[in-house]
Each structure stands twice: as C-alpha cells, then as structure tokens.
Design a protein around this nucleic acid. Structure first.
Lengths: 329, 329
DNA sequence: GTTTGCGATGTAAACGGTTACAATCCGTAA
DNA sequence: TTACGGATTGTAACCGTTTACATCGCAAAC
C-alpha cells in the first residue's frame, strides 16, 4: 500500500512551495485565488488531506477534548449521561473537535498522569473529585463541569435547573389539591441528591406544607418498591409521591398496584428525568424533562470559549426543565 | 505557565542522550538498570511524560480507535449501544488505546475524508454502509462490525446470537404450552430485524406451529400498543406474544391491560434485550439478555488482533444470549 | 595480545506539517 | 521614472519523539 501523500507531494505537483500549500489549507484567504485552485486540484488528484498529527505537532494544539464520566455505578453510560454524551458528540463534530470518552477511574491512573497534555479540554460528568479538577487545571487543561458544581474553583458549570424542576413537579401536585406529598429519594451524585432534597423541603415549606414524609432507597427497582411499600402502608397514607427519578417512580407504581391502589385516583406519582420508560409505564408517568443533549452542547460551547480565551462567560449555566404531564397525576 | 518538559530536559538532567531516555520509556529492557533509574528520577523531578503526539508522529502509529454509530434515529446512544460503548471504553483503556466516539453521518463528511488517517481502527455499530467499510479499508483502517454482518468483505463481526436468543424466548413459551404465539416486530437495523424475524419463523416451523400472526410497528410505545391492540382484538386471540424488543413488549402489556387481559394468565409476553425497564414493568418482563459490555470488549480485542497482524481470528464472533425469566410468562 | 561479538549508548535524520522572516511582485503616488 | 508598501510566495527552522546506524567498552575465544 502506498503511504499517504504529504504536503511535499502536493507542493511538487502544483509547483508551489509547501508553505503555500499549507496556507491554502489553513489560511485560504492568504493565498491568491489562482494559486489556491492549483493547490486544491493537486491535492484532489493525490487524495491528499493534511495529517492531523503532524499539524497538531507543529501548531502545538490538538483540538482534542474529552468527556470524563465520574461514577462508580455498574452502568456508567445510563440514559442521562448518554444523552449528554450525544449532545457533546454532535457539538464536537461541528466544532471539529475530536472527542475522547472515558471513565474517571481508569483515567486518573493511565491518562491524567501520562497523556493529559494532549487533551486541551475536559468535560467532567457526575461526581468529579476536586483533586482531579485541580490536577487538570494545573496542567493547563480547560475544565467544564456538567450537572455538578464545585466551590473554590474558577470553572464553568453546566447544570439543569434542579430546583426549578422540583418546583414544577411539586407545584403540579399542590395545584391539583394534594397536601400530603411524600418524597422517595435515591442516592445520586452528592450535588443532585442535595439539590433535589433541599428544593423539595423549601418548596413544601413555601406552601406551608409539611415535608417530613421522606424515604431513601437504593438505586434499583426492588429497593424503591420496598421503600414505597413502607410509605404507603402507614396509617396516614400520602396522596401523592414525588420520586427523585423515574426508576423510583416505577417502583412506587408497582407498590401501589400491589396494595390495590389506583393511580392517579388513590395516589399521584411524579418522576424526574423524563426518561424513555415514562411512556412505557402504566399509567404513563408524569415527569420532569431535562434536555440532556442541550446540556452536552452547552458544555462544548463553553469549553470552546474557554479555549479561545473568552472566559467572560457566566460561570454557571443553568438549563430550564420542563414538566411532561402524562396520566400518573 | 512553563511549557511542558521535553525529552531534552530529561536527557540533560540525567546526563544521558535523548535516545536513551526514549528507550528507557518505550523499551526499558534495552537500557541498563543503573541508567534507567537515573532517567526515571530525572523524569520524575521534571514531571515529564512522553508527548503522545510527537510519539505518534515518529512511530507512525497513533493507538487511536473509534466507535462509530451508524443510525439515523433521534437517540443514537440508546441503552443497547451505550452498553457496547461502555465495554469498548473499558477495554480500550486497558489496552492504552484512545477512543474516539462519533456518529456516522457527521463522520463520513468531516472525518473519513479529512482525518481517517490517524485512526488506526474503527468499530462500526448499527447499520454501517458497505461504502463506508470499503472506504475505510482502502485507507488501511482496520474495521470491526458490531451487531451486524456484511458479505463480500474480509472483516470481523461481533454479534450476539440472535437466533439462539429467539429460540430461548420462543421455546420458553412453547414449553409452557403455548401454541398460538404471535410476534410483534419493530424495524431495527436490517440485520437485526431480519435475524429475529427469520429465526422466529424457522423455530415455529420446527415445532410444527404456524408463524403467521406477525405484526409490525414503529419504534415507539404508542405504535407498539396500537399493533398489540389490533392483534389482541382478533377473534382468534394468541395466548403469547414474542416482542422483538422490550419497548414493544411494554406496549403489548399496556394493550393487554386496556383490554382487561391478565398477564401472564390470559397472555404471556417475552421481550428482547433485557433492558433496564424489564424489572420496572408490571408484571416484570421476561426477556432475552444480551451482554453488551462483553460485545464491546470483544470488539476491541479483535481490533487489536487485527492491528497486530494476527488476523487468523474467527471472522464472526458470536456471543450467547441468556433468557432472564421473570413474571410475564 | 588480538580478534570477535554483543550489549549499552550516542548521533543525527526522519516523521509531516506550520510559520517567522526574507524575498519578490506589482500597482501607485511622488 | 523611481521609491514605497502591501499582497504573495519561498526558505528553512522548529515542534518532541523514534530509530537506523555508528561507536564504544568489555569479556570470551583464539
């Protein structure tokens, strides 16, 4: 197999210097129309395209960014993070970035120490450790946090409006007349868990309602179902449940069914995330929609701004949520 | 900010040549214990680590591979492809590959033409076009197909045992005494759709049962529900439904409930993929499990073998499926 | 005491672009 | 006509490694 054509081949064939060929590709406006065309023709004929490695070497920049997911769960790319990933992918492609994807654990060992240098920017998803952030920043890597915040650092965070989302869910229930609203909460990343929890408490208080019927559960359906069973078998049964994600809501629905409760007549349920399971459940689940793709896109946009030195951006970018009303309330 | 240390800095500090430093890092066995230690100490002191770009340039290999998802759907990284992606990620990290992720459309325009050269291997997921494969192979890029097959090419395919999976599902129904088994099928990638369809037909025939009650639907719950409604309102109602994925099974369950049918008493349902929704449904859905992570890992392993020139591997790697029995049958 | 051979190390030329600087061209104003 | 200046283009150094080849030292074999 003949090795790939180089800029020298193009230079020779088109009769101009390599510098001009280079300019024709990276600064077309600096080479005369006529010459440029000659270059392009030669390149076309040779199937030449600039070698990105060599270019990165000479330019001292790689246009490579990474999406690092910091999670210890079994499935790293769940629907939520996958959605963000899609947004990042799409936006990265349009911005001619190359996107590396990895999990944080493997990364910290293999890569942060060994290769971080050729990554220009990192998007950290999940529960990033402060140590990782400072390590990266100290090496001159631009960092954007997604769905997380961190104090004490000078960095950009892209988050969904968790409090607003909880408000949409809870007010929806309150406006339908519910007074005894319980919450079943799972342990997500610290940031998310805290936001959803405090938001629930604050909003209930705002309406003068008690926010003391709160259960915790593990992140699996059985645990959620158990928690819901216990909750619903109290003497003072709540008329509505706010579940901090859709899986927990699904568990709640199962528990209700086992206890012979009708949804939404006997019990209203609202979920969070508006994942793909919502329309599959019976009844279809009302849930708070988060625009994951958009979050991913925003991450890339802000990372780009950071890399271009335009860091006069807002430090915290908040994306509104949207209540998707279905039949479970 | 001081620019990163280079091999020259290490060379100077440790008092050996750059060649020796280089060897100390990439061929430790070719440098004497004593020297090696001096080099490592100097590197440590300077926080030096080899610049992968320069290394790629000199070595003429990049250790970069890509996972390309060929799909036109709205959500590219659904649970299935995300699972594969996780496996690839993990395996790639262990093999010190850098992993790029992208969708095929953007790719074909931006990358295949412009940058394919510095990617050494590609894993193609979904419905890859033959054109893309030949384009890549003609540029000397190693290609592995996942969950797809393609004739006329000399390439490695990693697939789950679709026929075996269908057999597990259908035989499970048959052994429970079902005779009138209907199928509701969605339009996935051509390969998957065809496999599941023909497998169903063949296996039913094998048991002397008619396989003529087959419905098609779009890939959304409503469409699946509609299809199931029509199916279940026939005068000769089937006693079991084989759904070609879990979402369709969910639609079937919804339809059954609307018609007042009990599951599994009046209707048995089996899904496919064993996605995370199975335990959330009521009743919990029996489904055919596919080990996506493992498929991803296998892709990387075979890609690696390909890159190392050991291509005496089986051309088609098939991964067994496993029936996860729950309550819907 | 030479020669031989091998392991450890050094020298310097790639790898394929970019870009500072110099040189040239060409139109315009003095 | 000539000097001037911006637009184009060419020359060559450089980006940070790897690696073919040369060199060196030293022990075994003669």
């Amino acid at each position: 197999m003949p090795s790939n054509p180089t800029i020298y081949d193009v230079s020779r064939l088109s009769g101009v210097s390599t510098a001009t060929v280079s300019r024709a590709f990276s600064n077309p406006e600096h080479v005369k129309e006529h010459t440029r065309r000659k270059v392009y023709e030669a390149a076309e004929a040779l199937h030449y395209s600039p070698n990105a490695i060599a270019r990165a070497m000479a330019r001292q920049r790689t246009d490579k960014i990474a999406y690092l997911i910091c999670k210890k769960d079994a499935t790293v790319l769940d629907e939520f993070y996958a959605g963000i990933c899609e947004g990042i992918m799409q936006s990265a492609n349009h911005s001619e970035f190359q996107l590396l994807v990895s999990t944080a654990e493997d990364w910290l060992h293999n890569v942060s120490t060994a290769q971080a240098k050729q990554i220009e920017g990192v998007i950290l998803g999940g529960d990033a450790k402060a140590e990782l952030v400072s390590e990266l920043q100290s090496r001159g890597v631009a960092v954007v946090l997604v769905n997380n915040r961190m104090s004490g650092f000078d960095l950009t965070c892209v988050v969904s409006d968790e409090r607003g989302g909880v408000r949409q869910a809870v007010e929806h229930l309150i406006f339908r007349g519910h007074r005894h609203i319980a919450m079943i909460a799972g342990q997500f990343s610290p940031y998310i868990s805290r936001e959803r929890y405090t938001a629930f408490r604050d909003i209930m208080k705002e309406y003068g309602l008690p926010a003391d019927d709160i259960r915790l559960c593990e992140l699996n359906v059985e645990s959620a179902t158990q928690a819901a069973m216990a909750l619903l078998q109290q003497e003072q049964r709540p008329t509505a449940v706010f579940a901090t994600n859709d899986m927990i809501a699904a568990g709640t629905i199962k528990a209700a069914r086992r206890l012979g409760l009708q949804i939404p007549e006997d019990l209203a349920v609202v979920g969070f995330d508006d994942s793909s399971i919502c329309p599959m459940l019976e009844p279809e689940l009302t849930s708070v929609h988060i625009n994951c793709r958009r979050m991913g896109e925003l991450c890339v946009e802000h990372l780009k701004a950071l890399l271009d030195g335009k860091s006069d951006f807002p430090r915290v970018v908040t994306l509104p949520t949207e209540l998707r009303i279905r039949r479970s309330v």
